[in-house]
Amino acid sequence: MDRRRLLGPLNTVIPNIGISSEINGSKSTPQTGISSSSSSNKNDIENFFLKTGIIENANGSAYLEVGNNVIEVSVFGPRPIRGSFIDRASFSVECKFLPYISQPGDELFNTNNQFNNSNSNTNANGRTGLTTIEHKISSYVETALLPSIILEKYPKSTFDVFVTIVATETPTYNSNEKLMRLTNWIVNCASVALVDANVEVKDIVTSGIVKSNKSGDIIIDPRGQIEDEQNEQDEQDDQNEENVLGVASFMNLNNDQLVGIWVEGGDIDQDLVTKVINGCNDMSKKIRANINSFLIDSLQ
């Protein structure tokens, strides 16, 4: 029993989210994102909304909306450390979903989430610590951003980045794609938050996401169902397993230095990895151009 939170009577059970009893019997699917339907050109990057400095009690913050994803990043630091002397700053990223959101891929990871834990009689509001998925995202973002920060400038200090995921794509999204898309945008958003916090960085890290289908075509910034429509015949076979998804993050400095890469999916060879990296780099450059002009604008 949690003594620090009010989680309801001990004998409360969390009901399953069942089906709908509507007359036509079909499950009421939430409307799919506007984004996926309105995308005309495959290689366009989805529009995103970015705002900085919204969190007053943080040193820096950024807010990003893309598709149905809503991401908020707060940067706290440089803050003094407790304990013995360190000659460079330490850096941490903690990424958390709001408790009511069903996390992408949680049916696989069997997270603490109320729907999937086999003894599910727990209130999601009482969750402590991070789920496997949150750990996964946090560690990717941390790895990608770490090389960009000039840690030597901040001895005895710490930087803590807190990411809150306020909304995600609808459940109709393929979970891997949902997860990686989210991670991609968190990296971009967190980079802007670091700039907003006036942290000294070598460069701004931006990242991109691509998907390659069975035939080896690279799709930049995949948005859910585009691919599925073409392969409707082998829906049962779950063709997404054959696809390769990749997220890669770059600093433009030093010849597009690669600072993070995450590839998921079927058969991967060297050629494909190169293609994925190049595709991600293209996308990251477009985002970078956007962010650059945003930052220049905000200075004026």
């Binding site: 939430p30 959101i101 109320q114 209130n123």
Partner: peptide, 30 residues
Amino acid sequence: ITTTNDNVFGSSIVKSGNSTIVTTVTLGVV
């Protein structure tokens, strides 16, 4: 929030200055 999350049955967003409060209601059964 309520329409996109099956497990949320009521929600509210309140803003005052820069402070933002997001409240979501989920249900249990006893």
